[in-house]
């Protein structure tokens, strides 16, 4: 009895302390607060900076792009980085086999990466969370069957599955987004199910039942919000995986088709002239690497931030 009241008073102190610390940032406006939190973590800061930059680039690309990404120029073919044409225009990252400006094409390509990354992950995240929620919450034979299906799908390496499906379904931007969306959920299903199993046994869930709440209400109000943070962390990782998958597929000629500009397609062009024009290959790859790095950093930071148990640990 005594230890119980001890625990209670301890919990009260912890709650008080949390309330005290929570007061400080709460006085500032929301964007400032987020900035203050981010400033504490260099990785999180770098990640969000990169991701913001790429997203902004995707939106205002046409405005700041130095040249038209589709504009061909016979006299500027294969010009190396730093080329200046007769009108004095600078092509800072060089030109490709048709004389198109590489920098402008990289800016234009950010659109596809952002679009594919965000939309596919929204689709796959939604499917995966629902799937995992049902599997973990319903349990029993349903759970067994659903998880066996996931096992089967996980046995085929993701990129091979995607390549095979896009090979038979056909290429194109929207098709690709759908394919990546409808295959990526597998990753979430297992993790979310595991989280649901953990949360399901929590005291507040049992209390909710005891108060006479319906199963559906318990699932949606008490369980779902508590597994969402895992889903968000996974989603950040998946954005990176999806961007890499898109570039691989477009590179292999199974993804987005020209004239849409994507980094993967630029690499596929670059590969053909690998003996003479290294800049055609180097720069789009750097763009992909930096973007994915930003997403990975942001995901790492989100994981630490959303899960207090990991916070502070390496």
């Amino acid at each position: 009895m005594e230890s119980q009241s001890n625990q209670l008073s301890q919990a009260a102190t912890i709650a008080e302390r949390r309330a005290e610390t929570a007061v400080l940032p709460a006085r500032r406006s929301a964007p400032l607060r987020i900035l203050a939190i981010l400033a504490q973590s260099p990785v999180g800061f770098a990640g969000s900076l990169i991701v913001t930059a790429v997203v902004v680039l995707a939106f205002i690309g046409p405005v700041i792009s130095p040249h038209d990404p589709l504009n061909r120029n016979i006299r500027a073919r294969f010009k190396p980085p730093g080329f200046v044409d007769e009108s004095g225009a600078l092509y800072s990252l060089g030109n490709d086999q048709l004389g198109r400006d590489i920098l402008s094409r990289i800016i234009a390509g950010s659109r596809v990466s952002v679009l594919v990354g965000v939309v596919s992950v929204l689709i796959s995240g939604t499917i995966g969370v629902i799937y995992g929620l049902i599997s973990g919450f319903v349990g029993g034979i349903v759970d067994t069957v659903l998880m066996r299906i996931v096992d089967g799908l996980l046995a085929i390496p993701f990129i091979i599955l995607v390549i095979a499906i896009s090979g038979v379904v056909g290429a194109g931007l929207s098709t690709l987004i759908l394919i990546l969306g409808f295959t990526g959920w597998i990753t979430y299903a297992r993790v979310i199910r595991g989280e649901v199993l953990k949360v399901r046994e929590m005291e507040y869930v049992i209390a909710a039942y005891a108060l006479g709440q319906s199963r559906r209400k318990v699932m949606l109000i008490h369980i779902l919000p508590n597994v969402v943070s895992s889903a968000i962390v996974l989603a950040a990782v998946q954005v990176g995986v999806t961007i890499l998958a898109e570039s691989s597929l477009s590179f292999l000629g199974l993804g987005v088709k020209p004239p849409t500009v994507t980094w993967g397609l630029m690499l596929s062009d670059g590969r053909q002239y690998i003996n003479s024009a290294w800049w055609m290959t180097a720069f789009p790859g750097i763009a992909i690497t930096i973007t994915v790095l930003g997403v990975v950093f942001l995901g790492d930071w989100l994981r630490d931030f959303l899960d207090p148990n990991v916070r502070g640990r390496a």
Partner: peptide, 13 residues
């Protein structure tokens, strides 16, 4: 973060 096929291309270069 690096696409592996791009690393391959850079190694070739």
């Amino acid at each position: 973060a690096m696409p592996n096929f791009w690393l391959g291309l850079m190694l070739i270069i």
